[in-house]
């Protein structure tokens, strides 16, 4: 059984790594988690985002939002790079997550084919 002792060791390890990072300038990824989003597969999109961020060792803040009225475009995911416009991606499939993280979050190029809206910074 996993124990709290194990959690303490993990915390010490993570804390050392964190000291090297700049917390204030993180990309933000926002997942639509309304009833519409959940029914369309938002939980799986979120899992894919978390897995990809970990695999590529990207330090991003992952948050969520409720229904924004674009239910027919769910699952939705927004990327907000520091100081840049917020871009909304829609009708996402699991494979798209990898692409958005590689191209947009890591290389800072918007994935035009999947983007459906832009909100000014």
């Amino acid at each position: 059984m996993k124990s709290l002792e194990e959690l303490r060791q993990l915390r010490d390890k993570v804390e050392k790594e964190m000291k090297m990072r700049d917390e204030s300038n993180r990309p933000e990824i926002i997942i639509g988690m309304g009833t519409c989003g959940i029914a369309a597969g938002a939980r799986e999109i979120l899992q894919a985002v978390l897995a990809e961020l970990e695999k590529r060792d990207v330090d991003a803040k992952v948050t969520q939002t409720g229904c924004i009225g674009m239910c027919e475009r769910e699952p939705l995911l927004d990327v907000k790079m520091p100081g840049k416009d917020r871009i909304t991606y829609g009708n996402l499939k699991l494979n798209d997550v990898k692409r958005i993280i590689t191209e947009h979050v890591i290389n800072e190029n918007i994935v035009q084919e999947l983007a459906i809206a832009r909100m000014d910074n």
């Binding site: 996993k2 709290l4 993990l10 390890k13 961020l53 992952v62």
Partner: peptide, 23 residues
């Protein structure tokens, strides 16, 4: 146990997920 480290840290989240699965 985390004493200030965010529970949203990915490594902590993975630990929680495995902890829940195991439980």
């Amino acid at each position: 146990e985390l004493t200030g480290l965010s529970i949203t840290n990915l490594k902590i989240i993975n630990w929680i997920k495995s902890y829940l699965e195991e439980g």
